[in-house]
Design a protein around this nucleic acid. Structure first.
Lengths: 346, 346
DNA sequence: AGCGCTCTCGGGAGCGCTCCCAAGGAGGGG
DNA sequence: CCCCTCCTTGGGAGCGCTCCCGAGAGCGCT
């Protein structure tokens, strides 16, 4: 038996319209009628047809999460798994369906607009991992589909985004190293064609400046978010003999740690290591990494809330939201150093 | 300007129906007319409205990927990231939209049927990580929505699924250890309320039998797919002094390796280690893990193909598909042992 | 008693597509 | 030359919902 509004109406002795009002929780329905209709609905397990609903209302109840093609190789970075989880969870509570768009090629990415957006498949999209001058972002800005960016976009005007406090977090990491008495501090960064890379670098340098340590070019290099790039970067830094290194992501830090292990450099005894992200692997390494944790799932969830706000018009002005980070002290920095310094000071 | 079939028709001087035929690539349209319509379509960037289309045709062009709530804690297992990638890629090439359903609670999971299926949101679903007597699977079997299971379901009759060759792969791992001369071989398994856990155990035991090694209860234990469970399991196995251990998943093997590192047991010198899955982390550990690789992304892609076949009626009988595995020899088993044995034999 | 207001409810219209039927023209065979 | 068939095209009828308008009932007020 095909259940429709009409059919439910017949069974409850009311019209299609009234059933619709009950389903959509509109007020002007007498309580007793509402109850009667509710009863029929739960008896029959009726659910309004999604397609008909979106055709008539111009709303789909679906939002998209877009993961651009650049990321594909780095998808083993657990960051995205966590982000997806946060987004998914928020979608579930909002009774919204999550459509996932993972692109492996530029061509696929360009299909997004025609195939998904123009067809009206989604009410809005969340975009991650944009890069400087990202054409996707530009395209989105020109269109009128609501969207939220995860991570600060390079041109942010008119764009709603939610980002981690990369600058503040990186600054606190640098300060922490300084506090522990480290002076020759190295840096393995994220690509500077991403705002996260820029911001973490900025924060790191700010931190150094605040404690009057000065960065040396020989101590600074960049990776590309992969574990392997962290591995290589650390190898290239070793000759400069840093006392400690700040690595801009956990995944690269794991790679860096591997390079150190192979080189027989003990962490934290011979070198301090601090990273950024606070993902699960960072507490399963040996030694466990001291890191700046960012709230990844919360970020994803917040992005959904903002997008939904945009979609149903609760939010009218672009919102820029910064999620706080937190320094998580574990085993990869030597607290003995602090003690030494303190003793000297006393 | 709102583009519709009608509008495009007007512009091309034909009717709505003809445009529809062109869009859907039906034959009976004169080539010249077809071309004229095509031209207007690409000029205007027209795309048929998805909602209207599914309302009229009863097909949504969306498939769901369901990840049950049990998995949520183990989501940091890169297996799922790879699976999602495979599924997503296949969806992209098939011009199908992927809806992702990740459930964190049993309650959310139960909402799947009413909210998603009854509302006609998807044409079919792919379900992963089912367990014995999974109520979700049972519900799906009763309904008439096409679905494909990733991993062998415990009752497989009437169900289309695609699974890795867990038995064969585990057997080859056991045989490999035997070949290398290991005799006291330990086993850290996956939960035996999952068919993967059962099958890998079965394969492992088959392998031992084939080379006349006999399993000892003291050498066999199970984890729960998490890294931590692998860590603990290895600790519990250490007193029994196995010469080598087969761990049923990479993630648990990484945990086991961590336990060994902490205990000062060197791999492969003091103990051989082999695992199953062949995920990226297995080649970034120190030492790199010898493992049985299963084709995760291919599995996901195959699941999509099967589901699509089911959806449009190309496949009428349930299909059971087994993906081959491959032994990847790296550093965690001692080939020196083989040499020793060989030497003795000579 | 009459007026106007609010609350409740029903039904028409239409969202943009697919499906189907029928009409018209072209072409082949008797 | 006519009839039958096939190919091509157009348009009607929905798919199941939302939105909107208007009718009727009930109420308080003058």
């Amino acid at each position: 038996m095909k259940l429709t509004l009409e059919e439910i109406g017949r069974m409850a002795g009311v019209s299609r319209s009234t059933v619709s009002r009950v389903v959509n929780n509109e007020k002007s329905v007498r309580p007793e009628v509402r109850e009667r209709v509710q009863a029929v609905i739960s008896e029959t397990g009726y659910r309004p047809n999604a397609a008909a609903r979106s055709l008539a209302s111009n709303r789909t109840g679906v939002i998209g999460l877009v993961i651009p093609h650049r990321v594909h190789t780095l998808f083993d970075d657990p960051y995205f798994a966590l982000l997806i989880q946060g987004v998914s969870k928020a979608c579930n509570t909002a009774e919204t369906t999550l459509a996932l768009f993972i692109f492996q090629t530029e061509a696929e990415e360009e299909e997004l607009y025609p195939r998904v957006v123009a067809a009206g498949n989604v009410d809005g999209v969340i975009v991650t991992a944009t890069r400087m001058g990202d054409p996707l972002l530009e395209r989105l800005t020109r269109g009128d589909l609501p969207f939220v960016v995860v991570g600060r976009p390079d041109v942010a005007e008119g764009i709603t985004y939610v980002d981690a406090d990369n600058i503040g977090g990186a600054r606190s990491a640098a300060l922490h190293l300084c506090d522990l008495g480290y002076r020759r501090i190295g840096y393995i960064g994220a690509p500077t064609n991403t705002t996260a890379g820029i911001d973490r670098r900025t924060g790191f340098l700010e931190g150094l400046t605040m404690c009057r340590a000065s960065p040396a070019d020989a101590l600074m290099t960049d990776g590309d978010y992969t574990e392997m790039s962290g591995y290589r970067a650390m190898q290239s830094l070793l000759p400069a003999e840093p006392e400690a290194v700040f690595v801009a992501t956990d995944t690269m830090a794991i790679g860096a740690l591997r390079a150190l292990t192979e080189a027989g450099v003990s962490v934290p005894n011979d070198m301090g290591l601090i990273s950024f992200d606070g993902l699960p692997p960072s507490e399963r390494s040996v030694p466990k990494l001291t890191t700046v944790r960012q709230p990844v799932t919360a970020t994803g969830a917040r992005a959904v809330e903002l997008l939904l706000g945009l979609v149903n018009g609760d939010i009218l002005q672009p919102v820029h939201e910064v999620m706080p980070t937190e320094l998580v002290i574990r085993e990869s920095c030597c607290s003995a150093r602090l003690t030494e310094t303190s003793l000297t000071d006393n």
